[in-house]
Design a protein around this nucleic acid. Structure first.
Lengths: 224, 224
DNA sequence: GTCTATAGTCGGATAGAC
DNA sequence: GTCTATCCGACTATAGAC
């Protein structure tokens, strides 16, 4: 029935995802997207109303995929948190699991990961897509991570645990959006499995040391 | 003599820095830059040859400022490293000093810091400006940081210490380019001095724990 | 639903007066 | 050096045939 329809729409979303991630909204032309999708320029306004409509559709789509990918780890952690068990070692285990999955997602899957480019671009330049992003993926991730950190360190100040969650996310993201830089600096040709593995191990080891509950967490007090 | 000349050129570079940082190269129009600079559109091709010429001039300029700002800390660390003293505690002190300065630079000076937006944008979308950036600032920073890390941890593999340097830079940068996100998530109105201070303390404490020389650094071995 | 042709707009660069 | 006026190309979106 609507197989043909879905296919063209689908191809446009896929091509749009890559193009917008690589060149940004302004840097992308509808012509190039249509060409990459192998369909007609006029199909974009037809299916999505406008270029901006396609852009938003791209975000609706990839945020779904993104949550699906991390859903298992996020939900497992959330279930743990919800049942009130606050064992720091267990919480640390969930956190390491989750972050490990994020590293894999960011580093080892170059074709699936224009996602983070789109995320960064929206952070630099928030548009109406930022809302979709925030509500569907970022808020949830931040929330779970900061609650895990609270369980691990015993720190309960929301702002502080959120800052720590950010530090952590920053460690992961830097390897994604700094890929070109790292590769150039080290003379690599992209991340091989070996590099992805090393990055994951380094980040996990770093987390391990920095959050280990058995050390006094020299928690910070600033004037609130 | 050439006061007037310098002034117009200067105003264009300043306006261009802000505009390119905020909206990217494609998202910026020469008209808007000229208007913001309070001068004529035709002045851009006149002084810089083209829009791209202005863009490159912006990079030449801000990379100078950037190195100047961090120069003191970078050179102090480099002098320490050069004289062959490898005391881990001292090295850790230099690293903390340097990172602290970077946090101040990223967070507490909103008007001076379109710089990092430009850096991120070039990482996402390398153009000819990437070379300027890499050669004049990033390479030197990465180099010093990774050598400090080597001195602190005793780890001598260049790739590993570089990855660790990246982790560290990622922690700092995330607070800069994720500013809109953090502010929104925590319901802040930008970073006050208190927040900048807390961020600096958290990152330094994190580094402290993760790199402390007195712990066995569970150094990673992957198939090389 | 998909195409061609084209309208309408805008942005970068130039010509040339002052 | 600075301005106005303008050209030219490229882009998004639409009209309308098939």
């Amino acid at each position: 029935m609507k197989d043909k329809k879905e296919t063209t729409k689908e191809k446009l979303i896929k091509a749009g995802t890559e193009a917008f991630a690589a060149n940004g909204f302004e840097g992308t032309t509808t012509r190039s997207v249509a060409e990459k999708a192998g369909c007609n320029l006029a199909a974009i306004p037809y299916y999505f109303g406008s270029k901006k409509g396609l852009y938003l559709a791209v975000f609706e789509r990839f945020t779904d995929l993104h949550s699906q990918y991390l859903n298992h780890n996020l939900e497992a952690a959330r279930a743990f948190l919800e049942k009130g068990d606050r064992d720091p070692e267990t919480a640390l285990g969930y956190l390491k699991q989750l972050i490990g999955a994020m590293v894999e997602f960011s580093c080892s899957r170059p074709p699936n990961a224009p996602h983070h480019q789109l995320i960064i671009r929206e952070q630099l330049n928030p548009s109406s897509a930022f809302d979709i992003l925030y509500k569907k993926v970022i808020r949830r991730e931040l929330d779970v991570i900061s609650r895990l950190i609270a369980a691990i360190t015993g720190e309960n100040d929301h702002r502080t645990t959120t800052f720590k969650a950010f530090i952590l996310l920053g460690q992961v993201m830097t390897f994604h959006h700094g890929r070109q830089l790292i590769v150039r600096h080290l003379g690599l040709h992209g991340y091989s499995d070996a590099e992805t593995g090393e990055i994951r191990q380094l980040i996990i080891a770093w987390i391990d040391k920095a959050l280990k509950p058995d050390q006094t967490d020299s928690t910070v007090r600033t004037q609130s």
